[in-house]
């Protein structure tokens, strides 16, 4: 279990516990982080788990797959340098303390 922080669309900051082996999106929806609808359930096709990485872990985040980059590039919420689809990132020890800002819609 690690701690992650999400800044919800309302501006509220929420710290959650995330279980290892799940995705960041699954941890966020389990905790009910607002603004993450996760409609496709983690299939990398709806972009409703889009977050900006506000504070990255020291070791950085895992690289994006081509599909994640592709979805982010063409979704209606413009991609930013720190954009990620949280369904594509597995919860791991070295991500502890990462801060995400929910893009929402």
């Amino acid at each position: 279990m690690i701690k992650l922080t999400f800044i919800e669309p309302s501006g509220t900051s929420r710290q959650i516990d995330a279980a290892l082996g799940t995705s960041i999106m699954q941890a966020a929806t389990a905790a009910g982080v607002q603004g993450i609808a996760a409609e496709c359930g983690g299939a990398c096709m709806c972009a409703t788990c889009h977050c900006l990485v506000v504070e990255a872990p020291a070791a950085g985040l895992p690289e994006m797959t081509e599909t994640e980059r592709d979805v982010l590039e063409f979704t209606s919420e413009e991609m930013q340098e720190t954009s990620r689809l949280t369904c594509q990132i597995a919860v791991a020890e070295d991500l502890a303390g990462t801060v995400f800002k929910v893009v929402g819609r």
């Binding site: 990398c44 592709d70 979805v71 590039e73 209606s76």
Partner: peptide
Amino acid sequence: NSAGEHMLARRMLA
């Protein structure tokens, strides 16, 4: 197998 194109299609239709 063209996820970005799908996202763009949704924008065009919207």
